[in-house]
Write a protein that binds this DNA or RNA. Structure first.
Lengths: 209, 209
DNA sequence: TGACAATGAATGAACGTTCATTCATCTTGA
DNA sequence: TCAAGATGAATGAACGTTCATTCATTGTCA
């Protein structure tokens, strides 16, 4: 099974990005050195520069790849049979897909970078807008949302959902590393259900206490 | 009006921390150099080392000061006459108190740092827990919350509130800098009211659409 | 087929720069 | 006069980046 040059080249890029993800999550964009990344990838420093113009380009490529991953999650959420399941997919994507909790640290760093790097900010805004539009649409055509909108438009509901998701992700980086992915996931699901109940469930439920 | 040595010393520390806040927010903890900070403060580099052991200590002191500021905000929120006003204080504290939107960028950076610096993580967790406890208590003894708990405990409600607050703060750093503090504030208030309505307002409101 | 030429992926030492930190020196006020 | 405040040039480590060099693989021709 011979690989084309393009394929091997893409493999190398992916290999470097995988290593970069580990290093960035562990030390942050600007604390992780190109030597760290090369060591993690098991290649030489110089080789990175054959595939990426500079460190900035590695960061941008990481952000780009993250964008694609988010779009995948969104697509899966869109196809889920119920609104609750859609939300569960959105809220737990970062607990299991990849290794431990590297993803949360990476995303927080991405936002920190976006605060001072216009190009990254643009990209993150774009991802966020696409995702928001998708969720707004899911909500708008969901029967659950019809009779329980609390005076909020689907767009406003989506905004709240994303705010909570980001907030939980931020909280995630404070958690001691001993927490397993499963535990993180369980906590995320709890919060998701509460939010869902709040937004979309009419008071057919027994009141608390 | 003679100042004691302690007072002048504290002034200098505050002056350095003010400058550090500007630099950290503009460039991030590790991108901001000690020279940047000294220039912003209008003093020499060496003088910083008379008041702080090293850069790490400056970061820690910033986090400490932030903790005190949060506690002040919390105290004001606690004294507000209604629950809605408490929430409004909590949600808009970072839009106006200080200069433009430096605070949001700083806090996101603080969380990014917490992901890899155990000491900072501890401090942030501690602040968060204190604040959460305060808000939980405010909710628990608020009449508004009595008849509209949606099956959520005050603690669960506080958790959602803080998740949304963090999420909005994160979103804040994506906003183009041209946005004024007033505009940010207005947007924050809108979201606060929506969340409040959702959490604490029984469906005496007209439904949407 | 086998000898040789050409390729370009991969290496890592070296370069220039930046940065945190130090310290010899100067200033100031009592 | 002297202790404490303040300065900023000097230091050395760490970093991003470059590039001369190596060498396994591929292509060419007799």
């Amino acid at each position: 099974m011979a690989q084309t040059q393009l394929e091997t080249s893409l493999d190398r890029r992916a290999q470097i990005l995988d290593a970069a993800m580990v290093c960035f999550a562990k030390r942050g964009f600007h604390q992780a050195s190109m030597h760290d990344i090369s060591a993690e990838a098991g290649i030489s420093v110089g080789l990175i520069y054959r595939y990426f113009e500079n460190k900035e380009a590695v960061i941008s490529a990481m952000a780009d790849r993250h964008k694609k991953e988010i779009q995948d999650v969104l697509e899966r959420a869109r196809l889920a049979p119920t609104l609750l399941e859609s939300l569960e997919i959105l809220f737990t994507a970062h607990c299991c897909e990849n290794s431990p909790n590297l993803l949360s640290a990476f995303v927080v760093d991405l936002y920190a970078e976006a605060a001072r790097n216009l190009q990254i900010a643009e990209l993150v805004r774009d991802v966020l807008q696409t995702a928001m539009d998708g969720v707004t649409e899911v909500i708008a055509r969901s029967p659950e949302a019809k009779n329980a909108s609390h005076g909020l438009t689907p767009n406003e509901q989506a905004e709240l959902i994303f705010a909570v998701a980001r907030g939980m992700l931020m909280r995630d980086v404070l958690q001691p590393q001993e927490m397993t992915a499963a535990e993180r996931r369980a906590r995320q699901l709890e919060v998701t259900r509460r939010l869902w109940r709040l937004l979309f469930k009419m008071e057919s439920e027994p009141a608390y206490a």
